[in-house]
Amino acid sequence: MNRFDYVRAGSVAEAIAAGAEPGAAYLAAGTNLVDLMKGGIARPERIVDITRLPDLDRIERLPDGATRIGALVRNSDLAHDPDFARSYPAVAEALLAGASAQLRNAATAAGNVLQRTRCQYFYDVASACNKRAPGSGCEAIGGVTRAHAVLGWSAHCIATNPSDFAVPLAALDAVVEIEGSAGRREVALEAFHRLPGDAPERETALEAGELVVALRLPPEAAGFAAHARYLKVRERTSYAFALVSAAVALRMEGSRIAEARIALGGVALKPWRCREAEAALADREATPEAFRATAEAALAGAEPSGDNAFKIELARRIVVRGLTLARAGTPERVPALPASPFAGAHHA
């Protein structure tokens, strides 16, 4: 790990001032940053510790029915907050499908959304990586690419975003609240993560020194609580990143779907919202044929970036399964194996 200066911020204003210095990085739990520093992938010259910032560890229901998740709310506290889990069950399930209990106890909500890709070529400092070392090339292309992107990738980067949490947040139109030296602004979560294009080193909409202070779910997001699921396929059933995942949420009126929300994880460098597929389901009967057509639409434009064509059909099937399970209804309790498609006994 490189040497760095340590600054403990007592206020958001102090944090932003310290974070605006070149080479600065914000530290919350450190579950991603410290790991990256140990590997020499991140080499900040100054660590700005934001763990003592007041009021950022709260979950607030706002008067209009929106919910604001403070940046420092721990993943496990959010997932186990009874009101939050009942209002946004797919978000709770996604949180509990991520990492391990130890990491969820430490990692923060904003840290989850900001976590870096798990592409093994990004992690291996001996490999060329345009994200880690801009202009050096992408050794993932032509390499071992089972876990890489099938949507939105470029000739410069084929990595995926590893967050589970961000997938239902994208489906539910979450907003990222940001503080910077120019004041406060908001960015839709869907637009927060950038596709690689020709500048994969630019990962988010954050400008230098800007700090995520909260994530906000809009009032209508709780309207999907009765029919929401998160499903995740991975190489083992726990403590692994997604090969493919899907957040599916339906607003039902009788047997008809009034509104559908679908987002995919593990397939692109951002949570992949499937708006055209959603629109095709609106005001339709919830039939297997409609679900299959929706899945085809959701993966329209998907292309393998290497040895990962299997992900495209896998994602279609996860969309169909997600829609089927969401239609059947949110389970009473988070399944013993959260988000596992192999734990369907509840709906059998």
Binding site: R8, V34, D35, T51, Q102
Partner: peptide, 27 residues
């Protein structure tokens, strides 16, 4: 592993289990 993957370093920090290898003591 010293990288938050194996859990051998698990301690209770303010009552919650965490990976001590990924926590900077100063924080």
């Amino acid at each position: 592993c010293d990288r938050g993957q194996c859990g051998a370093c698990t301690v209770l920090l303010d009552g919650r289990r965490v990976n001590a290898c990924l926590a900077l003591a100063v924080s």
